[in-house]
Amino acid sequence: MADWVLKGLARGIRTTGWPARVEETPGVTPGRPGAVSRDDSPADVGVCPTHALEQSARGIAVDFGRCVHCQRCRGEGGVPWQDDFEWADWSTQSRGPLPASFRRSINVRYLDAGSCGGCMGEARLIDAPSYNLHRFGIFLTATPRDADVLLVAGPVTEAMRTPLRLTYEAMPEPRRVVVMGVCAINGGVFGQSYACVGGVDAVIPVDILVPGCPPPPLAIIHGLLLAAGRAEAASLERAP
């Protein structure tokens, strides 16, 4: 009989020190392009297939809500990339963080509204030993009746439009909606179509946006901490 308890204890603590300590291990985040001023880079914004780069007089601005990390603007002749992961921001119609009594513990209902294996994989890893969601007092529940935060991934397919709305309506107040991934923000590479609504805000009100394709686990946790009122928001756009 295997002694899982002892083996588990022997493995020790594998969790990242973030947010108390800086996390710079390579591979923790895919990184994303940063804005550049005109003098620094001769990059061609046409190389971006999702129009996330915008040329202006001052340089190249980045709209993170459109970047899908295709890496075509990376490398020589491209735009310099940054390895950060605190990406979450408030939406324009957000209601702010949850009341103070929720600061130390929130319950999250994850809803798959058409996400691919990328967002599914990253969402499943937020409670892995490397990131450990529970140390923040954040827990995943199976029923929206117990949930304070609805974490939605995916471009919201037509078939998931009604289940998404019903899930949101089943949540008691106060509640917040965190959308993860570029697909959930504006439809991503799928956009609006006969099968996709093209963004969660077309169905339910959205509070927090976490861009990325997929956003790494630490970015998702950053978004959830934002909902609990324990983190600072980043911006969805960067100007040169």
């Binding site: 291990t25 390579p26 591979g27 923790v28 985040t29 895919p30 990184g31 899908v68 990390h69 295709c70 890496q71 075509r72 990376r74 294996g117 990328g118 994989g121 990253e122 394709c213 997929p214 790494p216």
Partner: peptide, 14 residues
């Protein structure tokens, strides 16, 4: 993390 470090994306996009 290995995939991200070596190829630039954790899920080998791009």
């Amino acid at each position: 993390r290995l995939s991200g470090e070596v190829c630039g994306h954790r899920y080998l996009f791009g």
